[in-house]
Design a protein around this nucleic acid. Structure first.
Lengths: 162, 162
DNA sequence: AGTAACTGTTACCGTAGCGGACAATAACGA
DNA sequence: TCGTTATTGTCCGCTACGGTAACAGTTACT
């Protein structure tokens, strides 16, 4: 039996996932952020004032990585590290005005990117696909919305696909 | 609008793709090979005797990377570099008996892995998913069966998920 | 014959990820 | 109160990987 790779769901998922991550990073690059920055900013909208440790736990990464991510975002004036009101060791992370202005644009980029990826599908197929993918994602055991490759290089300093 | 990540097809695809690549590498690790080795071995079944350059072109990677891949496989006694019959610069790559014995086992691992990934879906949903993924993959413009992350670290010396 | 192109390989370098170690601060227990 | 332990954020050093340039050997072209 010689089932070709293109008929294997695991290969297709890996291949597509890689391509999607790559193109999304390229789409996001003009905004000066990477996909993991985007994920962090979105999470911060809900959990503003959190500790770096809390953020790291929520995103499933090590706090050391969070230092780097926040360094990037702070350098781009998208977050600020304020003193934590009750714990003088910790920082309270807050979004800046620039971030609140950037986030809708980033979301628009994500929407456009998704639309491009899904071009071959009609509306019904799209919702069915998302439903199926959600079921598969739940089955992986990863907490919802946590990208296992967040701590990987799929993020920083990626140049638009050349 | 705050569409959560888990409702975005691009996020789900990237997340699932990463997870699939990771778990597949872990499943394949006991056999002593990585996913890109597996892909190369499968390709070699069809193109035995090819030049390293031809193989690199077929898999969409740089010839330098092919050197490393073949070094790995040769060290595991899965391929041999014979002299090319007509071009004394080039090597003719051939599978060993060990490779022919290993490949069916690797394929079985891939089948089991795919089955595990697709556990939540019934037979009909599986074929529909594969069909949809194939359409999406074709739309990416990547040549069929060529994994864009082949040259990435998704391959070498990966230890079973710890 | 001579030059250009190609094959496989090695050496080099810049960078990212990982682990350990660190100062500052907090929490806990005697 | 004081001392020990844990936690937070950070930095440093190591290793591994991707990409570039260069190389010897060989072929192809004119």
């Amino acid at each position: 039996m010689d089932r070709p790779l293109v008929s294997r769901a695991n290969f297709l998922l890996s291949q597509l996932g890689f391509h999607v991550a790559q193109t999304f990073a390229a789409r996001l690059a003009p905004l000066g952020i990477a996909p993991n920055h985007f994920g962090l900013l979105m999470h911060l909208e809900r959990s503003e004032g959190d500790t770096q440790q809390q953020l790291a736990d929520a995103l499933g990464i090590h706090r050391k990585v969070m230092v780097g991510l926040l360094d990037d975002l702070q350098q781009r004036d998208l977050v600020e590290r304020r003193r934590h009101p009750s714990d003088r060791r910790a920082h309270a992370i807050h979004l800046t005005e620039a971030a609140r202005e950037l986030l809708p644009r980033a979301r628009r980029v994500a929407d456009q990117h998704e639309d491009e990826i899904l071009t071959p599908l009609d509306a019904g197929e799209r919702v069915r696909l998302v439903t199926v993918l959600q079921r598969l994602a739940e089955h992986t055991g990863n907490p919802a919305g946590v990208h296992p490759g967040l701590h990987q290089s799929a993020a920083r300093s990626r140049r638009p696909v050349d």
